[in-house]
Design a protein around this nucleic acid. Structure first.
Lengths: 183, 183
DNA sequence: AGCGAATGAGACGATTGCGTATCACCTGAG
DNA sequence: CTCAGGTGATACGCAATCGTCTCATTCGCT
């Protein structure tokens, strides 16, 4: 009965997303294993969160690769990115709100890499005339993260249908709520 | 030296926004009072969080009143709302992420009231032809909350200038990132 | 100045969760 | 079948934090 490390991380992410103060015991139970086994694979709570962080970074990076942001229009790239990141949305929203990760001096450099890639994408979109230039790439990047997290939350509590996740995020981020004169 | 209850709540909100696991002692120190005094005014951690919740709801409700959402265009109303809510943005972002508040059966009915008012505002905007109808009022409401929280965070960590807070949020929420043909 | 209320500092027990160790059980490979 | 490794259950000590209490001090009001 080899332990499925990734599945443990997934269930931990799902639980911690809902209640970030969950006990190690609860995390173990949620994964269907004993607390002792959980401790054998993750030295402690910190190590568990770090492993989740690594997983989240890795998945987001993979989503960026999958999205091939530079192919076609920026809009198409963004749609592909949101689609690719949807399975990881819950995990990412947990990590973003786990600001404990960002107060130590040992910040995972992966976030900087991701920020740089996303920010550069928005900047290129601006240079190509597809995106407004009065909204900074840094803000668009943060807003994308925020909307992904909000979307994951809204779906989880049932305020938005799961199948609308991508559409709601991309349409709001790209077009906004205002009704255009022509569309 | 009568205790300034509201100031205590403000500093608590500021601290807890940055680190939601802060100790009661840290909360007290941040407010410049002793832990004993903090306990005299708030029976415990729960009571403190509940007081913060009440304060946040009250302030948001006041912001909704101030904004006079029904006067002028929906866009003007939204701008006034974001402006009015800016001072409370940190507190609100803390409360929104404190999902511990929403798992008990004793959910503060204030949130429903607020959701209803904001949601109704977006719905009226749709009916008047100002807002798109393919984005549900519930989603626009959640997105507004999310962007306010993201904006507060971005300003706090220095990724967005404080003076751009309102502009970034309203412009993104209304117009989106896409560059219009005419603008 | 005097007095009552409020505060700060510290101590205390209780609770909680963590990390480790132990032991019995199960499973799969040889 | 045998055995080594992994697992679950349980127990134990430890540290952190909470909530309460006490007591001396300070503040504000008269």
């Amino acid at each position: 009965m080899t332990l499925d490390r990734e599945q443990v991380l997934r269930s931990a992410a799902a639980l911690l997303t809902r209640r970030s103060t969950a006990t190690m015991d609860e995390v173990a139970r949620a994964a269907g294993i004993g607390r002792a086994t959980l401790h054998r694979h993750f030295a402690g709570r910190d190590a568990l969160v770090r492993a989740l962080e690594d997983l989240g970074i890795q998945e987001f990076e993979a989503a960026l690769d999958t999205a091939a942001l530079d192919e076609g229009t920026a809009e198409e790239g963004l749609r592909r990115l949101v689609a690719a990141v949807e399975p990881s949305a819950g995990l990412l929203s947990f990590l973003v709100t786990e600001n404990q990760l960002f107060e130590g001096d040992q910040v995972n450099e992966g976030w900087d890499r991701l920020d740089a890639r996303v920010s550069a994408f928005f900047r290129r979109g601006q240079e190509r005339g597809e995106f407004r230039i009065d909204l900074t790439p840094a803000w668009l990047t943060e807003a994308l993260y925020g909307l992904i997290g909000t979307g994951a939350w809204a779906v989880q509590v049932g305020r938005v249908a799961g199948q609308d996740f991508q559409y709601m995020i991309v349409e709001l981020l790209l077009g906004g709520a205002r009704r255009s004169v022509e569309k």
